[in-house]
């Protein structure tokens, strides 16, 4: 799988970015870019800052330092109106689906179409059913979100996030909670969609095997830094112990499993001292 030839212009470009919440810095010194036609995977341990990276790209979070450019525009001092104009060209699949619980599956997928287009209802119907068909849930159109399983909800959310045929699509863990068959189907759908729309996609995932088989480029994130990047082949054959541990799912190695904390013995001892 190679990068599309007509993919000179970067859709997303981060240079030396620091970001965080409150007084905690989560990401530091991030250089990251996605070009048109590219499907890029972001992998990393839980809590390493992958969702935070997507928030940065989508303008939900402002960078502390460095520059974030999307579709060639800097997000640093962007107004709400301009940001909304950019977001109309983006689609985002949330980690937990974020379906509107008061709307049916059909109305959820129709929501962006109804808000942003003046299409007649018959056309909206056709478009929605097509999108639902692509995720295999055309038959579930009349159900309410509360009647869906976690995996089904994720697939509906996927259909909704691409309803407006976006140019930049962000997927936050699209594979979590999917059975192996849907996982393969959705993986292929993500690839096809990217190629068909000529879009740029960012895929945040833990699923190494599936994502390495569909993406063009991989970033590995650990503790707020990008520790490795390259094509799937480069990543697979990387001699780097970090990368090796992550790709081959080894428990012991340089990637820490624990959230940063003082050593366990120290904490326990401290407690013991306070207790009596």
């Amino acid at each position: 799988m190679t990068t599309n030839p007509h993919s000179a212009d970067p859709v997303v470009e981060l240079r030396g970015v620091d970001a965080g919440y409150g007084d905690r810095l989560i990401l530091s010194g991030i250089d990251f870019s996605v070009r048109r036609g590219q499907l890029v995977a972001v992998m990393g341990g839980s809590g390493s800052g992958k969702t935070t990276l997507l928030r940065l790209v989508s303008g939900q979070l402002r960078a502390r330092k460095g520059s974030v450019r999307v579709f060639g525009e800097s997000l640093e001092k962007i107004s709400e109106k301009e940001l909304y104009a950019l977001r109309r060209r983006m689609g985002m699949l949330f980690q937990f689906g974020a379906l509107f619980t008061d709307l049916s599956v059909f109305d959820n997928v129709a929501f962006p179409l109804r808000e942003h287009t003046d299409l007649p209802e018959s056309m909206i119907r056709d478009l929605v059913l097509l999108k639902l068909n692509a995720v295999g849930l055309r038959g579930a159109a009349t159900l309410m979100p509360s009647e869906l399983s976690g995996g089904m909800a994720r697939r509906v959310a996927l259909a909704r996030s691409v309803a407006l045929d976006p140019e930049l699509i962000m997927y936050d863990e699209p594979f979590a909670g999917l059975d192996p068959i849907s996982l393969g189907v959705i993986g292929q759908a993500i690839r096809k969609l990217n190629d068909a729309l000529g879009a740029a996609s960012i895929l945040v995932t833990h699923d190494v095997v599936e994502s390495l088989s569909i993406v063009d480029y991989v970033y590995l994130v650990s503790q707020g830094k990008i520790i490795a990047q390259g094509t799937p082949d480069e990543i697979r054959n990387s001699p780097d112990p970090f990368v090796h541990q992550f790709i081959y799912a080894e428990a012991d190695g340089p990637v820490p499993f624990h959230y940063p904390a003082p050593p366990l013995e120290e904490s326990l001892l401290l407690e013991a001292e306070v207790a009596p």
Partner: peptide
């Protein structure tokens, strides 16, 4: 947030 992301 999802709504905000859909520019609504």
């Amino acid at each position: 947030t999802a709504m905000d992301m859909m520019a609504v």
